[in-house]
């Protein structure tokens, strides 16, 4: 049991804890948005812990340093893509009309969207008379 094995195992244990936590958050939270909050963050940090932990553990277990760069690539890739996937999903959920939890306090997005719609309606009304004139001619 070398030092590298111990550090690696500690990191893997840390990551596994957050993995279990993310699935618990997925079950316990009341609506899609809060589930996404808890699940995505914990799963990303858990992946960092587990994957880099395996890279360090391999030094003691397999005796090879070539695992570290490859595990780093996988970890950095997950760190960059997980938030993008979460962002795409939460916007899709909002656009497809999933309601917020009834305990939510404020929804600025809806206000902004409705004001934008009003601006477009007014623009259309302004354009209509001129269009009518063109048709008459």
């Amino acid at each position: 049991m070398s030092i590298a094995s111990i550090i690696g195992q500690a990191l893997v244990l840390f990551g596994t804890f957050f993995y279990v936590l993310s699935s618990l958050g997925l079950i316990r939270m009341p609506d899609v948005y809060n589930r996404m909050q808890t699940a995505t963050k914990s799963a990303t940090l858990g992946s960092l812990g587990v994957i880099i932990g395996v890279g360090i553990w391999a030094i003691g277990e397999v005796g090879s340093y070539s695992w570290i760069p490859k595990t780093l690539i996988v970890a950095v890739f997950l760190l960059l893509t997980n938030p993008i996937a979460a962002h795409a999903l939460i916007r899709a959920a909002y656009k497809s009309g999933v309601p917020l939890w009834e305990g939510s306090i404020v929804d600025r997005y809806k206000e902004a969207e409705s004001s934008l719609e009003r601006v477009e309606e007014i623009k259309e009304k302004l354009e209509e008379p001129s269009r009518g004139v063109e048709i008459n001619e």
Binding site: S22, S23, I51, L78, L89
Partner: peptide, 21 residues
């Protein structure tokens, strides 16, 4: 909702990546 299921799939794939490593 459908969004719940897709979030679950997203988390499952992340966990599976760790499992594979």
């Amino acid at each position: 909702t459908t969004a719940d299921r897709i979030v679950a799939v997203d988390i499952m794939t992340t966990l599976t990546t760790g499992l594979m490593v």
